[in-house]
Design a binder for these strands. Structure first.
Lengths: 217, 217
DNA sequence: GTCTATAAAGGGATAGAC
DNA sequence: GTCTATCCCTTTATAGAC
């Protein structure tokens, strides 16, 4: 009941497809309706199997939840932050990262997934931790690598790159993700999302630009 | 079923105490166990009344949830950010705000409340929005007022104070709150929380210090 | 308003046939 | 492995007495 929640059942190659159908259906419903509101019958119907088949793969609803979230591999982050080592204006790169990251973080699917996983975090801490490690943590690591390289070349001043990565995410995100999680309709903030991002990047660069330069703007 | 979810039932002054008992019991259980896992029987027992009495006050569990969250008044923020207009080193003040804010945001009760409200945000957007407005929004407003004053006196460079407030929260918070919501045990980050805060304040001040000053450090 | 007792419905999990 | 049918428990909500 601890780590085993994250394990996928061993299956024959033949039934691999059906397993994928189940996992995908489970994710869709869990993230759309939440864990509590998602019945095994609904998952079975969505996946095109019977309830009994579901229980043949997963001993309980909790195990299914753990497998669906634990096997979630975010390839999103892989495509982000590419071309980090190529030369070019550092602020241009920061701006692109900021836009990509924010679009990912505020994507309806991302928000829905976070809502569900956060809500069950107290009961299933291993599951939510795996969710963080496979998603946000991975993104932070990539960003950290980029900052380390930028600091090495003098494009940014030297500082702990892991901290810089978190601060970059934080200053860009502001309260936007929290508001999205809480379904808060912002009055005008959708219109000038670009201005918010640009301002965040500006703040970050002011704080991390090389020391010897005067007023960078 | 829309806005009325947030309304409190009209009661005689005599039964006001019992209503408070119910609301407090409901909050405690909703925030500890989540909405779905909290039964009316448990709330009744915790409040020391019977289920039927509960239904006399609230027509449904949803209505009880809306009232419990909607009537939640965070006096926390009131005490924060006081003495903003008194003179003193701006960075000292920022550091104190940052510590207070982070302590509030990462408090187990805060995290538990956010988990519950976020998880039901899709079903009850009015409730979660009220939660945000009464809590985080109010904190942001106070911070904005402080920044506006600091900018007026020249302690900080001129900029949109609302944006600065969100960026301040964001850079201080980093991923700390998200990790708390997801029960992610950080390896060493508990030890040097002060260092993280100091670094965040430093980043913010580098970005918002008055323009004519050279290297503030 | 407050209680006890109960109706009514839903859904997690399993038995047993194929 | 997969299905149909069912057990059984939990929980919401109410009826009716005081």
């Amino acid at each position: 009941m601890t780590t085993s929640e994250l394990a996928l059942p061993r299956v024959t190659p033949r039934s691999r497809r059906k397993l994928d159908q189940i996992l995908q259906a489970a994710r869709q419903l869990f993230f759309k309706q939440g864990f509590a509101a998602t019945t095994m019958e609904a998952v079975a119907k969505e996946a095109g199997v019977s309830k009994a088949t579901l229980y043949a793969y997963f001993k309980s609803r909790e195990m299914l939840f753990g497998a669906a979230v634990g096997a979630l591999d975010n390839h999103y982050t892989a495509s982000l932050i590419s071309g980090a080592t190529t030369p070019g204006d550092i602020r241009e790169k920061l701006l692109r990262f900021a836009k990509d990251i924010l679009e990912l973080l505020l994507h309806p699917q991302t928000i829905a997934a976070y809502r569900t996983v956060v809500s069950e975090s107290a009961r299933f801490p291993e599951i939510s931790e795996a969710f963080y490690v496979n998603g946000a943590r991975r993104l932070l690591d990539r960003l950290e690598g980029f900052f380390a390289a930028a600091m090495a070349t003098g494009a940014l001043r030297s500082a702990p790159p892991d901290r810089a990565a978190e601060q970059f995410i934080g200053v860009i995100r502001g309260d936007l993700m929290l508001r999205a999680l809480l379904s808060v309709k912002s009055k005008r903030e959708n219109d000038d999302a670009d201005a918010i991002i640009a301002s965040g990047v500006d703040v970050f660069y002011r704080a991390y630009r090389p020391e010897e330069s005067g007023s960078g703007k």
